[in-house]
Amino acid sequence: MKEKTDHPLHQEIAKIAVLSPNASRLLEINSKPDHSLNDIIQLVKFDAALTAKTLRIVNSAAFNLLQPINSIDRAISFLGERMIVGMVIAESAGEVFQKGLPGYESYPGDLWRHDLFTAFASREVAKYAKEELEKELAFTAGLLHDIGKFVISSHLEGTAEKAVKVIDSGEASDYLNAEVQFSGHHHAELGFELAKHWKLPEAIQEVIRYHHEPSKALECYKPLVYAVHLGDILAMMSGHATGSDALQYHLDGAYEDYYVISPVELTKIIADTETQFRPALTSLDNSQEN
């Protein structure tokens, strides 16, 4: 199916491989508010490679199980929906996440680590929403929020030093603004174009587009967009950034309209995120090498 868009980088974005059918189906299930873990189990069960990989991950040293898990149902229950999403995205879109980002002076794997931390952090933040929020969707949206950096990186090569200079001098308000000054685009906008190319669920498209400007998001998606806005910031604060743009963005204080988080709770979010992030990173990295 041909997608029409007027975006100047359309042809470049159209060349990026689309997600696998299973990855698309998984994201579709994940974005439905009334889905259950059983829907995920059914999807994995009918894919032999995915089943094998899930069992390998759950029994990897990172999870330190006393007894091996041999049933796929139990494996998915143990790992949770988020790990299946992480595994499928890593496999289906590895090209996007694992390459270095020379435009940000960042190394191969940095984007994946940043996104995985953001995913866990967004999920933890979602627990503090004033109104019930789908936490697994916050994870997925966190994982995908920065896909635009893959697209824009080559257009920003050689600009990192200039970018921090214009931010320091006040000529650019933040890194997003600096990206526009040097390339005519910013990573959230290009991420949105890639999200459309990948036919991602609308909620995730909205997160990708507005994760640095959450107040511009559609009202119905704002709690989700703010979760990832905060998750992204927590990743940068925790040292999981993508090079030259680390901490060069604004916190939108209006998150308080949707979240109640005390100072102590925020430190708990960081500690809990770090605890979940480490084994996930190790087991997913190992599963990609196998």
């Binding site: 910031i233 940068m236 604060m237 901490l247 604004h250 916190l251 204080g253 988080i261 100072p263 925020l266």
Partner: peptide, 16 residues
Amino acid sequence: GASIMDNNEIFNIGKR
């Protein structure tokens, strides 16, 4: 002990 731009007291974990 750095922070994000426009951080509030809650997010100023570097300072804390």
